[in-house]
Design a protein around this nucleic acid. Sequence first.
DNA 1: ATTTTTCCTGCAAACGTTTGCGATTACGTT
DNA 2: AACGTAATCGCAAACGTTTGCAGGAAAAAT
Lengths: 335, 335
Amino acid sequence: MRHTTITDLAKKLGISASTVSRALSDHPDINDNTKKRVRKLAKEYNYKPNPIAQSLKNNRTTIIGVIVPEIQHDFFASAISGIEEVAYHAGYTIIVCQSNENFEREVVNTNALIQQRVAGIVASISQTTKNSDHFKSVIERGIPLVFFDRACEDVSASKVIIDDSKSAFNAVTYLIEKGYKKIAHFAGPKALEICKRRLEGYAEALNKAHIHISKELICFGGLHETDGYNSMDFLIKQNIIPDAIFAVNDPVAIGAFQRIKEAGLRIPDDIGIVGFSNNKITTLVDPTITTIDQPSFEMGKKAAEILVGLIENENKSVKPKTFILDAKLIIRGST
Amino acid sequence: MRHTTITDLAKKLGISASTVSRALSDHPDINDNTKKRVRKLAKEYNYKPNPIAQSLKNNRTTIIGVIVPEIQHDFFASAISGIEEVAYHAGYTIIVCQSNENFEREVVNTNALIQQRVAGIVASISQTTKNSDHFKSVIERGIPLVFFDRACEDVSASKVIIDDSKSAFNAVTYLIEKGYKKIAHFAGPKALEICKRRLEGYAEALNKAHIHISKELICFGGLHETDGYNSMDFLIKQNIIPDAIFAVNDPVAIGAFQRIKEAGLRIPDDIGIVGFSNNKITTLVDPTITTIDQPSFEMGKKAAEILVGLIENENKSVKPKTFILDAKLIIRGST
DNA sequence: ATTTTTCCTGCAAACGTTTGCGATTACGTT
DNA sequence: AACGTAATCGCAAACGTTTGCAGGAAAAAT
């Protein structure tokens, strides 16, 4: 089965390909009767223009590139889903790449997307991203770019984020109001902006309540379960037992959760826990975990909507904007 | 910034574009010295052939299309990740579409991928897929197609699946050996082959142990948490309390799990639970849930590997094969 | 009858690449 | 000197689409 081409239609009708093309795009030059004949035959043969040929003309496809650290991760899977949803309805398809939290691979992916002449890119950067030259060259090429959640600060592109600092502040303030005093923070990689901001929020909340910030209560680590587990393990072995933990994200909270249970401590009586992201898991463990709802699906949707807007208003080069979505504290059993 | 073209190089070197093309593909007609000059300049300008122009010639891209019911779903996110991994190393990119368990959308997605001239398609069908005409037209067009997990039985394509029936049989047999007698099954939509097979395995295990199969212990529903919750709720309200539940998948198991806890019943003492898929969640709840490890990442990888093989050996039209991956019963606290 | 205007349509180029075939040159052979 | 044979390379077409421009025919105006 071959695809029907515009020339096939032209031959059948005894007219030229250019007339068919114009008829299908409702060009005023073309006779109404001719248009009708063309449209009828096009429908009959289920003709659809070859997107590759169109792309070659426009030097651009109708594909949106997506770069995320890890597809499996709840947050990103859900964001991708939001992006796909918007793209689908706007007539785009999405190419998904994962950097595996690896800088080099992120660069390769970005260049591959540029190569492929994607119409635009939605990205969330890896933990190990050292510089942003690859994203800058996206901008230079005039390819619309939107970051979500994890953005490159020195790239002039729109972003969809949440107010990490404020959210962290709220969560920790809530813990303080609940009566918790010795509040630890299981922080993420210092290189990631969002982690820095969550740490800032934590510190601000303590400051405001005139609680001394103890360095030994701040444990740096990665973003996975094992990191939370290890941090908690480290504290326990040093016999430093906080009465509450604010974790940089849910997996880390879950890791701490497990180690606490292993230690025979009770949640929330002995130790309270607050996570970050509102992963599904937090509603399934016992007790359920207090967390901050990071609207992943909506962030993906919003980012894609902005991107589509940029793609379709290419003339007006709008100034990059930062969109801050609401992240609400969801109080559950762990506090 | 424009992309460097083959003509740019040709002009700089004062030779023709065809010579440049041949030089870069190491054609024997071309003088070694010329090749060197061409390669050097190509490197200098970081020349990469325009994939769109190549696609137009070949009438095929280097993109692999992926269709799944839901990207967010743990199993599929992980499978996509496996597909991406293989594709990346084989020099392909992946376009990801989700059907949202909707038949019409699956058809639209499939046609869009055909339109885009993808090199091949990896798919897992939706719950509501009524017929397979869209997949048949993929085959007719000569586009390689591989199913994973949920396959269309009447389409002649390779599949990567697990032995659902046998796995279910093993799980239920294990429950019987453990001493459970009144074993319920929370089944999935009858339209899905995999659900049918899991039900079969359940029935076989009971038969073999000469346990009567009671219809009231088989609850049909969907594949989500709420379905498991509702099934359990239904049983409880009818005062039918099984001593074990074999759920069609993990979300359903989790749903049942929650309702059981709400009812004040103990797991595994009052009711044992077995899930299916080995989602991460099953290790995080208390007690952890016995389940069948469905190697999602590996299934994605395997499917992609087969697909790449098919794409690159296009001449030899191999007979479709079915690959059955191992799915092991993982015994945990819930039984 | 001639010119102008309007309406419709086709030609050809362009996007960037690949490739069959023919052309050119150099070199060795008779 | 005449010819054959490699060794190199370029022309042009093709993939399918879009679009500026020119051209033809018919209708209207002079």
